[in-house]
């Protein structure tokens, strides 16, 4: 990559400060787009380094019930991929520091067209893209387009991923490597801390990228446990569960800070490591 990407810059900065990456996930348009924008700004206030923004999709087959319902709320409001990109552009008007990663499923991107998507995402200020149902072998074309637009392509490694395959994924991946902490869908419970530690140690042999953990982190306790064995953590369902309690329509509501408190608490917990 010619210049250092925003994600790499953030990561190396945190590593220098001996801090862990904190990456909240929320769905664009949940409960509506103005509220999502307010939430994103609040997440930054509470210590988010990078935000994963979910692109709503009608068939989120890798997500558990909490995120499914978040996606349904966003779709009920008619949120599209274009709206998601416009939201990023709006966020960028006031924030050029925080990393933004779009996370979603392939079909909306496929229907928009890869070239169009990569160009629009770069123009909006997107730093990375993670397509859940697009493994590296079937993604060469999109990956190439994103790389040409200086956007990182982030891949998942799962507990079921073979060592050999993990090596290929680590080579293809840019930005950060996302380790799925459990067998299952988003929002399930982590059961096997010991093997996560071992796997992450072995992944460090494969790549210089930051290795972050996601899929089952619910509170400051699990945040701390996972951050202690990795370079950072992703918190999704636990945040979306709070967002579910907001109603749309009044983005500047007083509940916004308490809604995002799970992220602030995780920040304190992992900073105390």
């Amino acid at each position: 990559m010619p210049a250092m990407s925003r994600i790499s810059a953030i990561a190396s900065d945190r590593i220098q400060q001996e801090k862990k990456l904190l990456i909240p996930y929320l769905v664009a348009g949940d409960p509506d787009l103005p509220t999502t924008l307010t939430l994103m700004k609040e997440l930054v206030q509470q210590g988010a380094d990078i935000i994963e923004l979910g692109i709503p999709f009608s068939d989120p087959a890798s997500d558990g019930p909490v995120i499914q319902r978040g996606v349904e709320r966003a779709l009920n409001g008619g949120t599209t991929l274009r709206d998601t990109l416009a939201l990023v552009a709006q966020f960028r008007e006031g924030d050029t520091e925080t990393g933004i990663v779009l996370m979603g499923y392939l079909n909306p991107i496929e229907i928009m067209g890869y070239e169009n998507f990569a160009g629009s995402a770069a123009a909006a200020g997107v730093d990375g893209v993670l397509v859940v149902d697009m493994p590296p072998t079937d993604s060469m074309e999109l990956h190439r387009r994103l790389a040409a637009a200086d956007i990182d392509t982030i891949y998942l490694v799962a507990p079921t991923t073979s060592a050999e395959r993990a090596k290929d994924i680590a080579e293809a991946c840019t930005g950060y490597l996302y380790y799925v902490s459990l067998k299952g869908v988003t929002g399930a419970a982590i059961t096997d801390h010991e093997s996560i530690k071992e796997t992450i140690e072995s992944m460090r042999q494969l790549t210089d990228l930051p290795v972050v953990v996601g899929f089952g982190i619910k509170d400051s306790k699990s945040a701390k446990a996972m951050a202690s064995v990795s370079d950072g953590i992703i918190i999704g369902s636990a945040l979306v569960e709070q967002i579910a309690k907001l109603s749309g329509g009044a983005p500047e509501k007083p509940e916004i800070p308490s809604c995002c408190a799970v992220i602030g608490e995780a920040r304190s917990a992992i900073d105390s490591l």
Binding site: S62, D133, D138, T161, R165, K183
Partner: peptide
């Protein structure tokens, strides 16, 4: 690799790939 011309493939989450 599981393709019928441009169709088919293996578009599933990483957990299911193995």
């Amino acid at each position: 690799s599981g393709h019928f011309g441009p169709y088919g493939g293996v578009f599933v989450g990483e957990t299911l790939i193995a």
